[in-house]
Design a protein around this nucleic acid. Structure first.
Length: 445
RNA sequence: CGGAGCGUAGCGCAGCCUGGUAGCGCACCUGCUUCGGGAGCAGGGGGUCGGAGGUUCGAAUCCUCUCGCUCCGACCA
């Protein structure tokens, strides 16, 4: 994309309403525009990152054997009356009446609807296990939205629901989600730690929240510092192998890591003092096994091998897709702007033309731009007639991980500059080498 | 929902207390010079001051109501 043909309304000054760094940078980098309290338009740059994150979530869900579908944003109230949540949910639920005076609601989540789909079409244990998910906009009418997309009222969320014949199978679905989430966050350049969450009425250790450590996080967290070093990496995972999946979950959940909701001083004290950490975290996902709560109230049953009819075992599993943009920025930025991890960056690299209009410099930039595109990459070429400083400032703000700087001075020696946004380190090399290096960097991403 | 505050040009703000029909910086447009970290000079365009009502000869300024937004707290992915 050529910047002169793109829509990137960057702001030089900080908008007054933005309090935290991710909100400020998303506004300044022209990623979002607020339309009402907690409701945002996604401008092209923000939309691109949102779509990249969504794509990673899809890929990892499908890899884990989960099946995508799409449920509507508006739901009939009757389904929620069946589960009892129409009255329980409170004012966070946005209630709407249609022209026929029927009660509708803008979905804050989809347990009822997915259970309705399931009960309409599935009646035998032979069709299980089944895990369905979708990525859809939700609405929760928060009393006090804030922090930009971190706590909006409208938000994009991946929510998945597993249907299993018994508790063991359902717990495997739970574990499968944990592993798929670990991989998802790692691909986004995040360290998200699964922490035991408040267990609710079912009891036991059947819900975990995933937290990204950040000083602006909403939750106080207590953890063994060793958990921050755990990585899934590129290891092969067979999602049908219950023992392997369980072993990975154990590996990631044995060390102490809890939010203030479930914090246990006695257990925490057992962590070696040097590794005992207290911090803050941003919740970017939660997995939950809840058994038959909805299947019983809504009549979602299957016939088992011995001919009996049992309510199906369920769990639900969410990732805050839109919120992840904020979380990633909170975890990856400096005083000049955003620093995108390669996995989610809106453009793979930026090309800065230091002397727009100079025949040699223009030609070199065009060649690099074409070469990167030929490699299947998505570069952003700053071809504006701006001064160098303005171009650098824009690139730093929008946070592309790699920048190719092209100017007459370097070209005189046949060189351009490749700069890492994260380290700030620049290296001189030929244009061809720079293109190859960038292509190489993205090979494994 | 309890407490506090703010709505004046695209953005950031001053003016309001002590009424006299609006100003600064950035951005934008034109020209010249500049050109490796948000350039300089000159010229120019843009707002009727969130909305409604009231007081007054006169309201951005005072009063009432209303809408929106923000912050602290409680709540929350």
């Amino acid at each position: 994309m050529r910047l002169t043909r793109y829509f990137l309304p960057v702001l030089k000054e900080n908008p007054a309403e933005a309090q935290i760094v991710s909100h400020r940078y998303m506004l300044r980098a022209g990623m979002i525009k607020q339309q009402a309290a907690g409701i945002y338009s996604w401008l092209p740059l923000g939309f691109k990152v949102l779509k990249r994150i969504e794509q990673i979530v899809h890929e990892e869900q499908i890899r884990a054997g989960h099946i995508p579908l799409l449920m509507p944003t508006l739901q009939p109230a009757d389904l929620w009356r069946e589960s009892g949540r129409y009255d329980d949910y409170g004012q966070e639920m946005l209630r709407i009446k249609d022209r026929h005076d029927r009660d509708m609601l803008y979905g804050p989540t989809n347990e009822e609807m997915i259970t309705d789909i399931f009960r309409s079409h599935v009646s035998s244990y032979k069709e299980l296990p089944l895990t369905l998910y979708h990525i859809q906009w939700k609405f929760r009418d928060e009393v006090r939205p804030r922090f930009g997309v971190m706590r909006g009222r409208e938000f994009l969320m991946k929510d998945g629901y597993n249907f299993d014949v018994d508790r063991e199978a359902a717990l495997h679905a739970y574990n499968r989600h944990m592993v798929s989430y670990l991989r998802t966050y790692e691909r986004m350049g995040l360290t998200a730690i699964p922490m035991r969450a408040a267990s609710g009425p079912i009891g036991g250790d059947n819900t975990h929240e995933f937290l990204v450590l950040a000083s602006t996080g909403e939750s106080e967290v207590f953890y063994d510092d060793a958990v921050t070093g755990l990585k899934l990496g590129n290891r092969e995972v067979d999602y049908d192998d219950r023992a392997q999946v369980k072993a990975i979950c154990d590996e990631f959940t044995t060390l102490y890591a809890r939010t203030d909701e479930t914090h246990d001083e006695a257990l925490f004290d057992a962590v070696p003092e040097a590794r005992r950490k207290v911090g803050r975290g941003i919740e970017v996902g939660q997995i939950f096994y809840f058994g038959t709560k909805y299947s019983e109230s809504m009549g979602a049953t299957v016939v088992t091998a011995d001919g009996s009819r049992v309510p199906v075992e369920m769990g639900s599993h969410g990732i805050g897709v839109s919120r992840l943009l904020g979380a990633i920025i909170e975890a990856s930025h400096d005083d000049k702007g955003i620093i995108w991890p390669e996995g989610v960056t809106p453009f793979h690299a930026g090309i800065v033309n230091l002397k727009q209009g100079d025949a040699a410099t223009d030609a070199a930039c065009e060649a690099i731009y074409a070469a990167l595109k030929a490699k299947g990459l998505d570069p952003l070429y700053d071809d504006r007639d701006e001064r160098a400083g303005a171009k650098f400032a824009t690139m730093d703000l929008i946070g592309l991980p790699w920048r190719v700087t092209v100017g007459p001075r370097g070209l005189a020696n046949g060189k351009v500059e490749l700069t890492s946004r994260r380290t700030g380190i620049s290296e001189e090399m030929t244009a061809e080498t720079a293109v190859d290096r960038i292509a190489q960097i993205y090979e494994g991403v």
